[in-house]
Design a protein around this nucleic acid. Sequence first.
DNA 1: AAACATTTGTGCGTATGTATC
DNA 2: TGATACATACGCACAAATGTT
Lengths: 252, 252
Amino acid sequence: MPDNTVMTPAALDDVARGSGVALWKQIAERIEAEIVEGRLAPGARLPTEAELSERFGVNRHTLRRALATLTEQGLIEATPGRGTFVREPPLRYPIGPRTRFSEIVSAEGREPGGRVTGSQVEPATADVAKALKIALGDEVLRIDMVRDADGVPITCGSHWYIAERCRDLDLIAAATGSVTRAMETLGLGDYRRLETRITARLADDEERRLLALAPGRTVMVVEAINGDPQRRPIQFSRARFSADRVQLVVKS
Amino acid sequence: MPDNTVMTPAALDDVARGSGVALWKQIAERIEAEIVEGRLAPGARLPTEAELSERFGVNRHTLRRALATLTEQGLIEATPGRGTFVREPPLRYPIGPRTRFSEIVSAEGREPGGRVTGSQVEPATADVAKALKIALGDEVLRIDMVRDADGVPITCGSHWYIAERCRDLDLIAAATGSVTRAMETLGLGDYRRLETRITARLADDEERRLLALAPGRTVMVVEAINGDPQRRPIQFSRARFSADRVQLVVKS
DNA sequence: AAACATTTGTGCGTATGTATC
DNA sequence: TGATACATACGCACAAATGTT
């Protein structure tokens, strides 16, 4: 094994034994501060549990108890055999009247992308008809998309439009990779979000494939109703967001 | 197989073969309509897959394909050995400037409840300090709660208050089972939601215990910052909602 | 393909201090 | 005072996942 010229930067980090504060808590806060203050950058690998427990002068179990709270807070993530890593901060995705994927991703300094995975004109099912305030069975245009930021898939889902108002929207969307752009082309660029419904569940096989998720990961299911300036519904969408990579934000 | 003069209530439900629409899709929409229109009530048990496939005159595989889409939509839920059931509609939980648990649950016609599972004065960790705009280590009061509707646990989580402004808040909350009530008592009843952040993950052991969730269920992690009328933060909370039982709603 | 080292994940046993009854 | 329960902390061992040789 190559020489490790081990760090132990200053000395051994002192934890206050018998101070009334649990050792694991002190350690958790110490590491949390390092992450929040940026000394441990996103994506950085933490020292191994063995190293850390030695550095803090505690048993590995105690150290692991500290890491567990950080994992729960979403600050770090561990993989057996690889190590423990500082998690990339999730994409902050504000939900409001003017919610548009590409604008949001751009505002976060990342490059939005998307591709159409399918589209079809079909009769409205009960949920779609109710959301769009049309009759059950009326024709709607469904567009399925996967959208990403810097090439990392963020969300996949279906978007339903009242067919007669959206001729060829699917073709334009497929060409541009953006529904917003396509709707602008049709003079519907001024839509606004009327309502958003959020729930969550385990990702299924298709979602794991489209979003490149490991087994056991979760998705947030976000249903949205978008309307024209007169608040008449023109679009209903049901998208699944990778819960690992996105944090939905509502400002009031 | 002998002909069993089985029910076939009216006749056998006709599905249009060779109509260009997949059989499973027709069946899914048929059942979905029954649920949405209330002919199949929440909690009701569907006929067995064998019965249904016979009624629709399709193979059980085809029928299962239809049920799969309904499961994905969250309309039904199947348990091996028990059957397939119409899911209870989730509690609609609006997120806005005046988000209050008990008011929301009451408005849905259900009885809100809650109990304090712990409380403590502690130094602010980095995330709490940042949310409340106080210095790291300043004293905060943490109250842990489980809250329910009609006795069904909905959410569990921690609420942090700036300690000096909230003396004895924990005692009042424990007595009333409601933080809103407690804050009113202290003259802080007029708080409003400043920001809400939402993500999701698998429920851990403690959450499964507190919320009575089966293994593999997910929780939505909702972080909220509440402020006084001058929009100064007075409370930060991190609550986990049962994703099975709650749908967060944002109106714009 | 197979063997090996590294690293996290899990289980069991033990001991201690601190509340609570 | 004692009995009990609980959280904390330590030690040892092995399983499971990953990466390298």
